[in-house]
Write a protein that binds this DNA or RNA. Structure first.
Lengths: 142, 142
DNA sequence: TTCACTGCAAAACGTTTGCATGTAT
DNA sequence: ATACATGCAAACGTTTTGCAGTGAA
């Protein structure tokens, strides 16, 4: 069973209705390349390719629902850039370039220690699945 | 020479005009307690205490200018919360609680290793002066 | 005197909402 | 048949912009 069917199955189990719109939105989210993430606007565009009309409000409402149900992560890339991805995306960091805006995905294993430190020192349970760090990428250093 | 005068001096050197509005905005930013950060709206309110009228547009324009000139940091607290602080604020982490929204400041020394790792592995120069991590604070864990 | 800076009001932006209609169950 | 979900348009809050007027240099 793939990502898409798995999400739909879970939703059915929770008595959510599977509308064509919801299916398209879920498909758009799951059908991206390995470490790609989409904004609400991008999801809207991708869905529009298939049927001419899925309202942007529906995209927002569906995304909110999927996040609420724990099936999709809302990932903050700083400023007002907010992207979405299915939860199957493993733990990783987003290295966001302040200059060119490019987002590079990085291994986040080194953050294990940080997570433990924050818990022992501050009793803070950090969500390290999708963290974003800002800086300057290789290309933009002259 | 204090923080405020230092910033004003730098601006003068770069031929920026020092208006009463700009001085008040800089003062509001520099006059906060050790690890406090202000939103544009908060800065606007603080400035209004002194003179009844500094336009919010001026606050935004001045903040953009100060950030551009490297005198103030624009710090992202996730979602649409964006705060500002003079660059003299030392390196630290913001632990943002997803539940109650409370922001706890934490020592960021452990991130040194992370910074070096990101550079050696990805040639990415991470800005670790003000990073934000999301999670659940001690109070909100039942 | 000059032109960078400000205030104002309007516009833009992404997101959310109320309500009537449509449709998955 | 029954709500749940959708589309539409209007409302929303924050940030940006155009433009005429002001004031720091």
């Amino acid at each position: 069973m793939n990502d898409i069917d798995q999400i739909i199955e879970t939703l059915r189990g929770k008595q959510f209705r599977i509308t064509p719109q919801r299916e398209l939105i879920i498909r758009a989210l799951a059908d991206v390349d390995e470490d790609d993430h989409l904004t609400a606007e991008e999801i809207h565009k991708r869905v529009q390719v298939h049927t001419s009309a899925v309202n942007i409000a529906t995209v927002y409402r569906t995304l909110d629902m999927l996040v609420e149900e724990g099936l999709v992560s809302r990932i903050d890339l700083g400023g007002d850039k907010e992207v979405f991805a299915t939860v199957h995306h493993g733990m990783h960091m987003h290295l966001v370039c302040r200059q060119c805006g490019h987002v590079l995905d990085a291994d986040a294993q080194i953050l294990r220690d940080v997570g433990q430190y924050l818990f022992s020192e501050y009793e803070f349970v950090a969500d390290l699945e999708h963290i974003s760090l800002f800086g300057i990428c290789a290309n933009c250093q002259q």
